[in-house]
Write a protein that binds this DNA or RNA. Sequence first.
DNA 1: AATACGGGGTT
DNA 2: AACCCAGTATT
Length: 346
Amino acid sequence: MNQIVLEILEYYKNNKREMPWRQTTDAYKIWLSEVVLQQTQVIQGTAYYYKFIENFPTVAHLANANEELVLKLRQGLGYYSRARNLHKAAKIIVSDYKGIFPKDYKLILKLPGIGEYTAAAICSFAFNQAYPTLDGNVFRLISRLYAVELPINEQKNRSFFMEILNNLILNTNPRLFNNAFMELGATVCKSQNPNCNICPVSIQCMALKEGKIKIIPIKTNKIKVRNRYLNFLHITYGNKFYITKRIQKDIWQNLYTLPLIESTQGIDIKSLILMLPEVIKNKKNTIDLKSEIKHLLTHQVIFAKFWEIKLEQLPDFESNNLIEVDINSYKNFAIPKLIDKYLLLL
DNA sequence: AATACGGGGTT
DNA sequence: AACCCAGTATT
């Protein structure tokens, strides 16, 4: 076995963090943990992992659940399509595999929401198969160890890293190997301020030797961020207010929000009144700007204004797909963090 | 190949 | 403000 691998495995044995999903080889639970942890730090995902295994102890429980509940349990974590894909995959596992998680990499990879990383994670952690988990941590670790200056975000370079890993993982315990490599990347070979002084393979690290720790890994793409101006209508009638399900292909698909008017810039109350639907353009209604919240997403900066509209009489909302709720009942619906922030102010 | 998809954390 | 996180699906 490669000396680098030996050192990393040894370091892991002595320094690993305890994590709940490391206590099990149940493919279903491994899968839940991986879906929760995609693009998410362990500290942020852990509570959601517990929520999912408690509400859905088996894949059949998940398959039989209402999608609304699956989304609700993911509320606040983001990437809500992952909850929908998780639910879809559970149904497939029950219908096509009799509720028994498939063991074959290619079959696992076909399931919605499972890509190359997650399929490898399930194969190795649950079944101890030799599929390297090439996540952000491992990309960074390998590129530094071997001073690889290929952009890690370009698909065509993936095979270069996989070839290295497929050789390193030979004759090791795959479960241990993947845990050890990801752990070292997450805790020592960090993106910023890596802890090279305590790194078990700093002597072998080419990037360190060549003074390239700060420039490796290389990433080429710059993400584009756009501004959006969202006007949320907090329409009240007595102690009731109204929410609506977002069905369009956009952020927060299938979650519930206050009814919303998007504008091309931030607008004042006069402009808002002009944009209001006829049913609430009653002069007896009072309208006030209650809150402004700037909400940051990866690709969007949302400038949200929350307008309270107090209705004097109950209009006919039948055709507007509005759902009447109160300060308690809205909590049964999955709502985005931004809306939750506002409603918690009430 | 490039972009969208949430939200939180660090520097 | 820039970058990253146990990435995947869509365009």
